[in-house]
Structure formats: structure tokens, C-alpha cells
């Protein structure tokens, strides 16, 4: 910017030595600033993960994964019910959100034209920006209050709503990024639009669609806000999704604001488990779902 502005008409034709030195100086400053910011961004993540590991590792042991919480004052106990609860809620949410999201993505990428498609795309974008606590409140109003009963199912519905825009956009992008010759090749063989979509186009886009699904799962796995008024949490083994259920991030929240040191340690350990799960999902999507041709 500075270098370009200092160039007069003559300077542009035959840059003088001093000009070049100035440009080199600012170029070096720019590169340094960019490198510094990248370093800050990366080190923040490393510091957070490192801190969670040092704080949480002490409380990680087998009972932590196998036992349910013990009453305050008794040492030991674990978050097994929360881990299982998280898995149940996220699994139900994925089952709810996947068909709706993928079909919407197919519609937007292959069929949708004009105002209707633009409207759906816009709504999906807006939905992805809605704070998760607002979605939690919505789930409370519609699926908890009428039944006068907290439930894991209502949390799953809130999760599903959070996952939808991610699944829709990644599915649409996955399908759009396929060359149009694939679709035309299938149609030119006399396949119906349905056969071409199901037998040729969707399989080709599958890895990218699954990546989107897993990223959506990773996104909601750490969510706490929508659970406050839906799943509510539980100190006991609870596997029935129509009842209140424990959830790992909710347990972390509850333990962290408690006054007990023992629970604080467990909160750190729970946070470590959450980060590890999200980390593993991201690593898996990068390594296992990489297409043979590369991307």
C-alpha cells in the first residue's frame, strides 16, 4: 500500500533505487506481521490444549471413564454417564439432521433455481449464525415446556438444528464441485435424473458429504448452552432419551462452577476428553476421508 502510493508516474516507469528499498522494507514488515499473527493464532491453540492437558491429565483414570458421579464429599467417581449421554444425543441429532441436510444440499446443488433456492440458502446461512442458546430456548419452548419434562430428545433436536446449516452447505459444495461432465455423462447414457443422482453423482460426492457430517458432529459435541434447558443433566445412568440425561460438556459446566476442588479436577479432565474427541474427529476426516486423487 505505502509502496504503491509513493510511486509517481515516472517512478512506475523506472523505479529508483530508494523506491525499491522502501518497497522491500515494507514487504519485509508485511511478511513479518503476517508470520507473527499466524504464530499468535497457532500458539493460542497450543497453549489452550497444553493447559487443559496439564490440568486434566491428573484426574484421567479408568474409573473416570467407567463410573457415574459420586455425591459431593466422596472422592472418585467418573463421567461415564455423561460420555454415553453425549454419544446418544449426538447420534440422535445426526440421524435427524443428516437426511434433511443432505437432501436440502442435493436440492440446492442440482435442482433448486431462482428465488426459492436463494431463499433456502439465505435461511441456512442465517441459521448457522443463530446463537446456540437461542436454539436451546426454542427447543425448550417447543419440546420441553409442552411436555413439562426435560429430555435428551429435546437436546438432540437442538443439536440437529445446529448441525443442519453445516450439513446443507457442505453437501451443496460437495455436489457443486463435481465437474458437470460427470452429470452430463450419466444423463447422456439415458439415465433418469434420479438414477444419475443416486448411482453416479452422490457416490462421487460421498467423501466430502461425510466430511461435512463429521465436522457438524464435532461442532455440536462441545455445545453446552442448548443443553441447559433441554437435556438438563443427570447424576445417574440414564439411557432413555425421553428423560433428562447427563452430557459431558454439561457436566464440565456444572463441575467447573462448583466450589469443590475434586469436581474442578474432573471438569478439567472432562474438557480434555471433549477436546480430544473433537481433535480426533478432525484428524479422522482429514486422513481417512482424503480422496485418492487428493484435493
Amino acid at each position: 500500500m505505502t509502496g504503491a502510493a509513493s510511486l509517481g508516474p515516472e517512478g512506475a516507469v523506472a523505479p529508483r533505487r530508494s523506491n525499491r528499498a522502501v518497497r522491500r522494507f515494507w514487504s519485509a514488515v508485511g511478511v513479518f506481521a503476517a508470520a507473527l499473527c499466524s504464530g499468535i493464532a497457532a500458539s493460542t491453540l497450543i497453549v489452550i490444549i497444553g493447559y487443559v492437558i496439564t490440568q486434566g491429565i491428573a484426574a484421567i483414570n479408568l474409573p473416570f471413564f467407567l463410573e457415574v458421579p459420586r455425591p459431593v464429599g466422596m472422592t472418585g467417581g467418573g463421567v461415564a454417564n455423561g460420555i454415553v449421554g453425549s454419544a446418544i444425543m449426538v447420534a440422535i441429532a445426526a440421524l435427524l439432521a443428516t437426511p434433511v441436510g443432505v437432501l436440502t444440499g442435493i436440492y440446492l446443488a442440482l435442482f433448486g433455481r431462482g428465488a426459492a433456492a436463494e431463499g433456502i440458502r439465505f435461511l441456512a446461512d442465517v441459521l448457522s449464525g443463530v446463537p446456540s442458546i437461542a436454539i436451546g430456548l426454542f427447543a425448550y419452548t417447543v419440546f420441553v415446556a409442552p411436555f413439562k419434562h426435560f429430555s435428551a430428545l429435546s437436546a438432540s433436536i437442538a443439536f440437529a438444528i445446529l448441525m443442519l446449516p453445516i450439513i446443507i452447505r457442505t453437501a451443496e459444495e460437495a455436489l457443486r464441485s463435481l465437474p458437470s461432465t460427470i452429470r452430463e455423462g450419466a444423463l447422456a447414457l439415458g439415465m433418469s435424473l434420479y438414477s444419475a443422482t443416486v448411482k453416479v453423482i452422490l457416490p462421487a460426492a460421498r467423501p466430502a458429504i461425510v466430511t461435512g457430517l463429521l465436522l457438524a458432529v464435532a461442532r455440536v459435541t462441545g455445545e453446552t448452552a442448548p443443553l441447559l434447558f433441554t437435556a438438563f443433566g443427570s447424576q445417574f445412568w440414564e439411557l432413555n432419551p425421553t428423560n433428562p440425561m447427563a452430557e459431558l460438556s454439561l457436566q464440565v459446566f456444572t463441575y467447573a462452577i462448583s466450589p469443590y476442588d475434586d469436581w474442578h479436577r474432573q471438569a478439567w479432565a472432562g474438557a480434555l476428553v471433549l477436546i480430544s474427541v473433537v481433535f480426533l474427529i478432525n484428524v479422522f476426516t482429514r486422513v481417512a476421508l482424503r480422496t485418492p486423487t487428493g484435493r
Partner: peptide
């Protein structure tokens, strides 16, 4: 769709289906 079963087409760039 029925027309395209009687009239085949080959494209400028070969387009084998990626997953087949």
C-alpha cells in the same frame, strides 16, 4: 431420457465415473 438411450454421446474430456 428415452431419446438419450437411442442416441449416445462421447464428450470432449473423458468422463469415467469417479467411484466406478
Amino acid at each position: 431420457v428415452a431419446v438419450r438411450r437411442r442416441i449416445g454421446m462421447v464428450f470432449q474430456r473423458a468422463n469415467p465415473f469417479p467411484t466406478m
